[in-house]
Simulated assay, not measured.
Amino acid sequence: MNQELRVAAYAVCVRHEQILLARWVARDGTKRWTLPGGGMEHGEDPVETAVREVEEETGYDAEMTVLLGVDSSRRRYPRKLGTYADFQALRIIYEARITGGSLRPETGGSTDLAAWHPLAAVEDLDRAELIDTGLRLWRERPALGRFAVNG
Rank of each mutant, 00 (worst) to 15 (best):
R146M: 08
H16M: 03
R74G: 02
V47H: 06
E41D: 05
T49I: 11
G38M: 01
V149Q: 09
D112Q: 06
R23W: 09
V149F: 14
E95R: 07
E41A: 08
P78G: 06
A96L: 02
E44D: 07
L21W: 07
M1T: 09
L113Y: 10
G69V: 04
D61W: 05
G39R: 13
T99R: 05
E44V: 00
L119A: 12
E4Y: 01
E53L: 11
T30K: 12
G108F: 07
T133R: 10
L21V: 11
W116M: 08
G39H: 01
L135C: 05
H16I: 00
G134K: 07
A114N: 08
P142I: 01
R32H: 01
A22T: 14
K80I: 11
E63Q: 14
L119Q: 08
I93G: 13
L67H: 14
C13I: 08
T99V: 15
H117Y: 02
G39E: 09
E44M: 08
Y84W: 10
L68W: 09
V54D: 15
R74F: 07
T111Q: 02
E44Q: 10
I19C: 12
E48Q: 10
P36N: 02
E123F: 02
P36V: 00
V25P: 01
I93S: 07
A120T: 10
Y60G: 09
Y94D: 00
T133A: 05
G145I: 07
R104C: 05
G101F: 06
L125Q: 14
D71K: 02
L119S: 11
R146T: 06
L130D: 13
M40S: 15
P105F: 00
D86H: 11
A96G: 11
L144M: 09
A148C: 12
E53N: 06
D126N: 05
L81R: 13
W116A: 03
V47P: 11
V7S: 14
T83S: 09
C13F: 10
A26T: 03
L144Q: 14
L125F: 07
E44I: 05
H117F: 07
V51G: 04
L130F: 11
A22H: 11
R146I: 05
E48A: 11
T133H: 07
Q3C: 07
A89C: 06
T65L: 03
E56N: 04
V122F: 03
K31C: 15
S73V: 14
V51I: 08
L68D: 13
I92H: 03
G100V: 12
L21T: 15
D124K: 09
T65I: 10
V70S: 09
